[in-house]
Design a protein around this nucleic acid. Structure first.
Lengths: 155, 155
DNA sequence: TATTGTTATACTCTATAACTATA
DNA sequence: TATAGTTATAGAGTATAACAATA
């Protein structure tokens, strides 16, 4: 916890951007490991959770659509979906007009898993955000998550 | 690009924190894939780059020290270090007083790889930060990277 | 021909378990 | 006994290549 610092954080010239990118890469690896460790034991991996969450947000979708949205190859998404199907969390139904395609959707159990995950997961980061940041810092982090999310969605 | 919004971003109550954590997890996966894709072809993986960067910042260190710092098991760090050694980017020297330990340090080639990486890598994220965010948003993201870095280092 | 999806194969990252050498 | 490191093995995530079915 720190005293409130109301000055503008940093001047964002080119050097800072390279520096920021470098730190972001390191941060990305650290976060991945910490979050994975925090959410292990709930039976779904992070990739699987991302797909469940997306199906929940956006409704049923095909393998190729999900692969594009998550920016992985259809083969990789196929593997993730197979695991989810085997776990009974998603189901595939035939596409009404195109027999090549399969529509993936959440099962009842999949919906329950998402609700459960909302409650249990990410406890490490929630506590860290609450206990180690002051109000202003928390607002900065929350907004940055939105902004970075926008950058990874666009292109 | 957006008009400047000077209002405080969000009030950070418990619900927001869970929401933020959930988004952060999704973001983490997306960033990992994007950054890996952006830096592939330079011959070092993200884990290897993290170790090179740390050795460059903090100087020579043992396997166990590096494992603790990066929050991986010594076995995992050992594998990363073996790959880096085989690539000629780090070297191991005996610890002066404890013959169990090995001191890892950057080779000349390792230093060059880091300098090269600074120039080439992360171009996607640098461009995105520069082109898709305004000054205030950039400052928010840069500060949040620092804050989140602090959270993953502590604990 | 192009698209959707699958199967086969391989590499990276990480983990656990069991071991050796040294302290 | 405890610590530093290695070897063996396994699972998740991802990729490329080759293929079948369908459009």
């Amino acid at each position: 916890m720190r005293p409130q610092e109301q000055q503008p954080a940093v001047s964002a010239d080119q050097t800072d951007l390279g520096e920021a990118a470098s730190k972001l890469r390191a941060l990305s690896g650290q976060l991945t490991r910490r979050l994975r460790a925090a959410s292990e034991g709930d039976g779904v991996t992070m990739s699987q959770a991302a797909v469940l969450s997306r199906l929940n947000r956006q409704g049923p979708a095909t393998t190729v659509e999900l692969a594009r949205a998550e920016r992985v190859r259809p083969q990789s998404m196929g593997a993730t979906l197979s695991a989810l199907e085997e776990a009974g969390l998603v189901q595939r139904s035939p596409h009404p007009s195109d027999r090549r395609q399969m529509i993936m959707s959440l099962t009842e159990q999949g919906h329950r898993k998402i609700a459960e995950g909302r409650r249990i997961k990410e406890s490490w980061i929630v506590q860290a955000l609450r206990d180690q940041l002051d109000d202003r810092e928390r607002a900065v982090v929350i907004e940055a998550i939105e902004l970075l999310g926008r950058l990874t969605e666009d292109n």
